[in-house]
Design a protein around this nucleic acid. Structure first.
Length: 375
DNA sequence: CACCCGTGGGG
DNA sequence: TCCCCAAGGGT
């Protein structure tokens, strides 16, 4: 068997030695996670369910294990198979995803489930998986390796960090991506590539951490060039990031008393693309698409007969998004008896029982707003 | 390639 | 409090 010694790999950390040391460590120290089978040194256990592997990988995109676990349990209870998820009402899936963030993932999740149901099963190759919505280079490689036993080169942020240190790659990210991928390829074993990938991620999450790596506990310590040269925590080098601007915006909390005497709140469903796409929300003045300043009240408010004189300040919600911070000023109009024109609302708006607002599946910024109003 | 897209936890 | 960042993908 060729040793795979081309490229970045030069013997100080030969590929077979790295994989061997890491898999031995993983067989003892693997984390027990709901979507994960036990390590399988002999390669005889059945492979994990591709549906659960795929679902967990999508949820884990840019999201911590601790945040994912309860959502994974909720989704697999509600939709135990990809066929069940394919048949689900998309609005219910979006609501179930509320709070987890990056909502395009939930839209792609449904689209992917329906594509897989139409195919009859998940594709069992990296290329086939890569063609599905929501599966990029990382997720396609991870599912191919973990769920189908394929040899695939799996590179996520953990792997980037471990590899940058192991090979002492000084080039800053994101420019170092190609070198890191080549180095990862050189240490990825022909068998147990799925366990190897998960071992790299466990190592990155528990030992080779961003700050204060626990090198004394690391199975790769003797092979690690950054450890040999000191200060492994300085790698990988990253490009400086931009400062986040602060945006101002308004959201509208409008209540009516419904025909059955129940107090209801006006909610909208946001457009499918862009910020919080496809999610239920409070009507707003367009802050998500505007750099600063206050915009006009949303069109959905126009037919409601709420006199602007009746609007009251409802406080300010501060919320941080990926690329800006938001100061959301709440505008409240409560108890207007003329707000009974539900027939004039389009499909993208609805009255929602105030007492059950927690079930509306609001993204966190609007959940905060609801909490402020109802406090 | 650069930018957009959420959220919660840790130091 | 503030800053960093995590099992990235789409455009």
């Amino acid at each position: 068997m060729p040793k795979g010694e081309e490229g970045a790999n030069d013997g100080a950390n030969d590929g077979a030695g790295v994989a061997q040391a890491l898999l031995v460590w993983y067989d003892v120290h693997a984390r027990h996670l709901p979507w994960r089978h036990r390590p399988d040194p002999l390669g005889q256990a059945p492979l994990p369910d591709p549906y659960r592997v795929w679902l967990s990988e999508v949820m884990l995109q840019q999201t911590t294990v601790a945040a994912v676990v309860p959502y994974f349990e909720k989704f697999t209870s509600a939709w135990p198979t990809v066929e069940a998820l394919a048949a689900a009402d998309e609005a219910q899936v979006m609501a179930a995803w509320a709070g987890l963030g990056y909502y395009a993932r939930a839209r792609n999740l449904v689209a992917c489930a329906r594509a897989v149901a139409a195919l009859g099963a998940f594709p069992d190759s990296e290329e086939g998986l890569r063609a599905l919505p929501g599966l990029g280079a990382y997720t396609a490689a991870a599912v191919a390796a973990i769920a189908f036993g394929r040899r695939a080169v799996v590179v996520d942020a953990n792997v980037e960090r471990v590899i940058a240190r192991l090979f002492a790659i000084e080039e800053p990210l994101p420019g170092a991506r190609s070198a890191i991928r080549a180095a990862t390829d050189s240490v990825t074993p022909a068998t147990r590539a799925g366990d190897f990938a998960q071992a790299m991620m466990d190592l990155g999450a528990t030992i080779c951490t961003v700050r204060a790596p626990r090198c004394l506990l690391c199975p790769l310590e003797k092979l690690c060039r950054a450890r040999a040269t000191g200060n492994p925590e300085r790698l990988p080098v990253k490009a400086p990031k931009k400062t986040k601007p602060v945006r101002q915006g308004r959201a509208f909390w409008i209540e009516r008393t419904g025909a059955d005497g129940e107090v209801e709140v006006l909610l909208v469903t946001r457009p499918g693309k862009g910020m919080l796409g496809g999610m239920r929300a409070l009507p707003d003045d367009g802050w998500s698409a505007r750099a600063d300043g206050h915009g006009a009240p949303p069109a959905v408010c126009a037919p409601l007969g709420v006199a602007q004189a009746d609007w009251q300040a409802g406080g300010v919600v501060r919320h941080g998004f990926t690329h800006f911070d938001l100061e959301l000023h709440l505008v409240v109009a409560v108890g207007d008896p003329d707000c009974r024109v539900s027939a004039m609302l389009g499909d993208d708006a609805q009255w929602w029982p105030r007492a059950r607002i927690a079930d509306a599946g609001l993204p966190t910024v609007f959940a905060k707003a609801a909490q402020l109003v109802l406090a």
